[in-house]
Design a protein around this nucleic acid. Structure first.
Length: 884
RNA sequence: GCGAAAGUGGCGGAACUGGUAGACGCGCUGGACUUAGAAUCCAGUGGGGAAACCCCGUGAGGGUUCGAGUCCCUCCUUUCGCACCA
């Protein structure tokens, strides 16, 4: 063993050992309990960032801990390799996305290896690999056969310059984020997956996921957004019948059927067919509809918009009274939810009230407050909005409370074919078409004669050409005849291949299954999936709480229904790690923008007035003052990232791992601190030195547990106490920071222990072994070396997690804390098994305690809590007052 | 607006079931070693009172309890998610 800790050498040796003995390559073993530990796969952006390091360290610690607990642990890794950044990089460098992506993967794989993650690299997958994405295509075709996948023309954000669809978050103030062009709403054909078919199950099964954070389950439930209500048909009046050239009715969905008699207008979305029909003969209305259409489709923007509307001039009839009701086009009605039309009840809905007031429409009250406790602001007979009351002015349905009113109205409507109770979900079908190059081709062929023809299974995969370079003007696949021209599989005539690719969320919806059988080329998954899945522990960012996790759950259920899987849910336990934050420094520029400076370049000092100022030396040698902006998520835009590669080079992977695990619990945000990193490094060196100083004196013999001195017994107790705590902290609580604190405490105890007798050294030996094993999952390299130094042949990675020696924890005497009226006043020591009377006597015999009790007669009660080693003496009055 | 989580020293955080508030680390102060610094080691470190010892302290105010950072009520602040969902 070297006297001084050299992280680079130690880490090289440990990693070489794992590689040589193929430590992390695993196979199915029915005889052992499996543990599938999965971290969300990274996008190969080029370099790891601290978020990755944190994510994968958490996973690796759990994987290594479970391995030591005897589980057959699978920890795989792969690449979410399709996506827009590769196309953008291609445009600026002229390099094909495939080449850029594969280079990035190579670099990041090396970075992951340098951090010592115990990954089974033999299972690595990249979603851009045809052997992977062919199964996206295969399953898509199965979905198409079952109607789960379908084609529909839908409204999207369209960038007219780039000729592509933009995601909502890529539209900034109505303009394309890259081109600055005014974004249009366009209706183009898109493939959808019918996730709403699974809405009920996706919602209900959340209850079966106790291992998920409550927060995530709630977010998913809100996203699915189940509401119970009624659909109600308002038959067309003659004018509407004429405009639509058909009989029919305007359908609405409402959760407040009890307010049906309060309807004073109908509001429909701009895209609603009735609106289109009305606009045909009404240019002003057509212009208004166009205006609504051009508006942002971002829901948050829509929410803050002023309520605007315009008469269609058409009418529908009230299903009970037969009264004609005016139909309005309103910008606050969403085409995508419910029926794209709502009944306007300004008496009992705040939005409808705002709209009615603006347009001078009548307001009718049909629900009276049940409680009689009326609001102060509103007229006394109107209940607060959202409150349920008793119906009034509602014909035969008057005098009913909410539930009864809805029931009676729905029943009556149903009898006449004008409505029924229904459940409505906020969740919408998943549009997966992207007019982009770097993604999985959608396996369809458009034939002039046969129409839309699926690519036959035997022609899969539809391989994405890897040599194209996008130029920013639309999808290069659409310009590549070599790709799109093909023969129709049905008639053999010339046909055109679909050039849209799939949303990359498709790729990440099932990659975790493929890790079980990455080499299977005959089927999407095989029986090995039954062994490894579901994932026992999934770890990733909270930003995926809804989309990725919901899509994966949906995908699993679809595969189950196709008979490919025997599970309902893919991820048993979910840990959402917090963000990594760092300080943000910037200076405002002449053009009003801010220029950001990396915290590593910022120095702080006190100025003449004693206030802290921050300075940066810029290229050229000038020193400038910068403003401190507080903490922010590590990001490129705020230039506050810490490069993991530099950190590993300077301190070693173990320090990087130890700091990220120690600074805060995994679910909380982690604040970067250079001093904290130094502290982590210091601790590892202290541990190294402690072992070095110990082993250079030679191996001690074993100790006789029955013949230890008191200080020796204290050290043993500390060691086993720390071990018990770390076992619980890692295994149950997932609080790695307190497990590390326990090991630091133990090392402090060992450091103060200066007994160099053979028994003393034997006790120290055990304590150092325990601290080494406790830390093995967290700092695997240094513990690999220390374990050898402590005299072991077998590598620490193959050691079982140590067992707590309960006998080391027991003490002859225990200390009780004595309180008087809940305030700490003394401590007494009694025999371990002393009964309550003895404890009480000892407490009352304590001089200091009695001073606060003020005489035995003042004692009202004595409470002894044996489990907590606490005695509380209850006194009627404080002694000061008694005396005075 | 709705929903959720969280407010503890100079800082990150600990206190898991209501039972010794501030573990562990950072920083700071003093000391040792050193020509000097860095590194390392030792001691101290919530606030107040000279001190043994006492008082006060977990966002604010009330309550329950022998005992409250922890439970309940009201309020304040911050963060996150959703946001015209009919």
């Amino acid at each position: 063993m070297e006297e001084h800790y050299d992280p680079a050498g130690v880490e090289r040796a440990a990693q070489a050992h794992w590689e040589k003995s193929r430590t992390f390559e695993v196979r199915e073993d029915k005889g052992r309990e499996k543990y599938y530990c999965l971290s969300m796969l990274p996008y190969p952006s080029g370099r790891l960032h601290m978020g990755h390091v944190r994510n994968y360290t958490i996973g690796d610690v759990l994987a290594r801990f479970m391995r030591m607990q005897g589980r057959n642990v699978l920890q795989p890794m792969g690449w979410d390799a399709f996506g827009l950044p590769a196309e953008n990089a291609a445009m600026s460098n002229g390099v094909p996305p495939a080449q850029w992506t594969r280079q990035n993967i190579a670099h990041m794989r090396a970075q992951l290896k340098s951090l010592g993650f115990g990954i089974d690299w033999s299972r690595e997958i990249a979603t851009c690999d045809p052997s992977y994405y062919r199964w996206n295509q295969w399953l898509f075709l199965r979905m198409l056969e079952r109607g789960i996948a379908y084609r529909k023309t839908g409204v999207v954000n369209w960038d007219p310059i780039d000729q592509t669809v933009l995601a909502n978050e890529q539209v900034i103030e109505g303009r394309g984020w890259r081109t600055g062009a005014l974004v249009e709403k366009r209706e183009i054909p898109t493939y959808y997956l019918n996730i709403t078919r699974y809405a009920e199950e996706l919602l209900g099964d959340l209850e079966q996921l106790p291992g998920w954070p409550e927060r995530v389950r709630l977010m998913q439930a809100n996203w699915i957004g189940r509401s119970e209500g009624c659909e109600i048909s308002f038959p067309y009046a003659p004018d509407t019948r004429a405009a639509m050239s058909a009989e029919g009715a305007l359908k609405v969905f409402t959760t407040r059927a009890d307010t049906l008699f309060g309807v004073t207008f109908m509001a429909i979305a701009a895209e609603h067919p009735v609106a289109t029909a009305a606009a045909a003969s009404n240019p002003t209305l057509a212009a208004f509809i166009e205006e609504c259409r051009r508006g942002s489709v971002m829901e948050a923007d829509v929410a803050t918009q002023e309520k605007k509307g315009m008469r269609t001039g058409l009418h529908v009839l009230h299903p009970f009274t037969g009264q004609p009701i005016e139909v309005w086009v309103a910008n606050y009605v969403l085409m995508g939810y419910g029926e794209g039309a709502v009944m306007g009840v300004p008496g009992h809905d705040e939005r409808d009230l705002e709209f009615a007031s603006k347009n001078s429409l009548p307001i009718v009250t049909v629900v009276r407050s049940k409680s009689g406790a009326y609001g102060e602001v509103r007229a006394p007979w109107i209940p607060e909005y959202g409150e349920y009351g008793i119906t009034v002015n509602s014909g035969e349905f008057s005098g009913l409370e909410f539930r009864a009113a809805v029931g009676a109205i729905a029943a009556s409507l149903e009898k006449r074919g004008l409505g029924k109770k229904r459940v409505q979900y906020r969740l919408r079908d998943w549009g997966i078409s992207r007019q982009r190059y770097w993604g999985c081709p959608i396996p369809l062929i458009h034939c002039g004669t046969c129409g839309e023809v699926p690519v036959p299974d035997e022609q899969l995969p539809v391989v994405l050409p890897e040599d194209l370079v996008p130029d920013g003007s639309g999808n290069p696949l659409g310009k590549s005849a070599a790709f799109y021209s093909c023969a129709c599989p049905k008639c053999g005539g010339p046909a055109r291949r679909e050039t849209d690719t799939m949303d990359t969320f498709v790729d990440s919806s099932w990659y975790y299954m493929r890790y079980a059988c990455p080499d299977q080329d005959r089927s999407m998954v095989d029986e090995r999936v039954a062994y490894w899945l579901p994932v026992d522990q999934y770890i990733g960012g909270i930003e995926h709480a809804i989309l990725h996790l919901l899509y994966s759950r949906f995908w699993t259920k679809v595969m189950r229904d196709l008979g490919l899987l025997g599970m309902d849910e893919p991820f048993t336990n979910l840990l959402t790690q917090g963000m990594v934050l760092n300080h943000v420094y910037s200076q405002s520029q002449a053009d009003g923008r801010r220029r950001y400076f990396n915290p590593a370049d910022v120095r702080s000092r006190r100025d003449a007035a004693g206030t802290e100022v921050f300075e940066v030396t810029v290229p050229g040698g000038d020193t400038i003052r910068v403003d401190y902006q507080g903490l922010g998520k590590m990001s490129k835009s705020e230039n506050n990232g810490v490069d993991p590669e530099g950190l590993v080079r300077r301190f070693g992977a173990d320090t990087a791992r130890l700091f990220t695990m120690f600074a805060s619990p995994p679910e909380q945000t982690l604040e970067w601190s250079d001093e904290g990193v130094q502290g982590a490094s210091r601790f590892i060196r202290r541990l190294w030195t402690a072992v070095y100083e110990h082993v250079r004196r030679g191996q001690p013999s074993g100790f006789d547990a029955g013949a230890l001195t008191d200080p020796q017994r204290v050290v043993r107790r500390a060691a086993h106490h720390a071990l018990a705590k770390a076992t619980d902290d890692i295994g149950r609580r997932r609080n790695f920071n307190t497990a590390i604190a326990a090991s630091m405490e133990l090392l402090n105890t060992v450091g103060r222990f200066d007994d160099l007798s053979d028994q003393g050294r034997a006790v120290r030996h055990e304590a150092l072994e325990i601290v080494t094993l406790m830390l093995a999952p967290i700092v695997p390299h240094v513990t690999h070396e220390l374990w050898r130094a402590l005299g072991h042949e077998r590598a620490v990675i193959d050691e079982p997690w140590p067992a707590v020696d309960e006998s080391a924890l027991t003490q002859e005497s225990v200390e009780f804390v004595v309180q008087v009226n809940g305030k700490l006043r003394g401590r007494v020591r009694v025999q371990r098994d002393a009964d309550e009377t003895v404890v009480r006597e000892a407490a009352l015999a304590d001089e200091h305690v009695m001073k606060f009790v003020g005489g035995k007669s003042a004692v009202k009660r004595v409470i002894v809590v044996p489990g907590r080693q606490i005695v509380n003496v209850v006194v009627s009055a404080p002694p000061g007052q008694q005396d005075g």
